[in-house]
Design a binder for these strands. Structure first.
Lengths: 193, 193
DNA sequence: ATTCATACTTGACAGTGTCTAGTACGAAAA
DNA sequence: TTTTCGTACTAGACACTGTCAAGTATGAAT
């Protein structure tokens, strides 16, 4: 929404926080340290975000916005492509992804603009599933298949990112190949391919 | 392993921590508060676990042990049943589950006994998938299908537990029915059903 | 009688998020 | 031109946290 309002400190805080989230996880983010690194007082970041949860909400908003872009840009192959795009987004934007999906860090319900972006991304998924199922699909069918497809992508993403899969499936030469294969397995559960 | 070594404080700390994790998430666990509630000094819990990560490792060990039991007890219907059992375990043991799967809280690699229990649970999954695929399955097939099935279960579990699915799919009358349907969709991606 | 491990207690330290109050400053209003 | 006022901070204090270090009580083993 806000069109390039400069606000350099706000941008710096966000970038540093996302980088820490990527490298060490969201819990490692200390706003006092961020402030120190940015050369400002320990209270300066709070001016822009209110409190800690506010920063996480801002990260989530940005993350969901980027996710929507990724889903739109990369979904060449319908269902399967969207699933792949989701997982790739998570791996490439780990800093954002880790925060977005933790509603103990930022309850989206309290941050309308973040919720708006989340809804936008969710609707892309919903539309894709609805289109794939065709006209004959019941509401239950759509919900079930949406939950299923999201689960596959989300599960693979979190397992690869933070879960034990990273270790357990070591020896897998090409992660991208695994993602593609899993996404196609998911697709094969849909009628009419 | 340790056969009922009494150690009541150890047990109390674990139980209280798991309860907090269930109700407010692992980050809400304050060991000083746990100690206060248990009526002991703030340092008493640390005697049993070393540090904060040690407590999380203990919770993870117990959680993976319980997960194995759940997978063994409940997998009536092969692949589909195991997937369902995984999700139900997560919902019923949210306190444990949230900790188990966060390796930023407890790096299993540093806690052999927790890692042992995690391996045990993982092997149950691997065996089930291998059996379902039959003799002709390649190693890649097994890995892909294992990652796929785990992803479905893990994704659905985390989305229902902490993710936005909880909200997005509101209106779903029966969560158990959703779990069952999603698990069966996953099964339909396997050859020979 | 002494040693020794277990199960704690007590005190201190650095670090954190947050509340409150104060300051510098550029733009709008009088 | 002076005053008002919102923005972007700074500064200090508070309660709280995990952790380090050192001390204490106690029961079993030597």
């Amino acid at each position: 929404m806000s069109v390039a309002t400069a606000d350099p400190l706000r941008r710096v805080v966000l970038d540093v926080a996302v980088a820490i989230s990527r490298d060490e996880g969201p819990d490692a983010i200390s706003l006092r340290k961020v402030a120190r690194d940015a050369g400002v007082s320990h209270q300066a970041p709070y001016h822009h975000f209110g409190d800690r949860a506010g920063i996480f909400a801002a990260i989530a908003e940005e993350g969901f916005s980027k996710l929507s872009e990724a889903l739109i840009a990369d979904h060449n192959d319908g269902i399967s492509g969207m699933c792949e795009a989701y997982v790739r987004f998570a791996l490439e934007h780990a800093g954002h992804f880790r925060v977005m999906m933790r509603n103990d860090l930022c309850d989206l319900q309290n941050y309308p603009s973040a919720l708006f972006q989340a809804d936008r991304a969710f609707n892309l998924l919903l539309e894709e599933v609805t289109a794939a199922l065709g006209n004959g699909a019941s509401d239950d069918d759509i919900k079930t298949h949406t939950a299923f497809l999201w689960s596959v992508g989300h599960g693979l993403a979190t397992l690869l990112l933070d879960g034990p899969l990273e270790i357990k499936l070591e020896g897998i030469a090409d992660v991208n190949a695994l993602i593609q294969r899993v996404a196609r397995l998911a697709t094969s559960s849909f009628p009419n391919q």
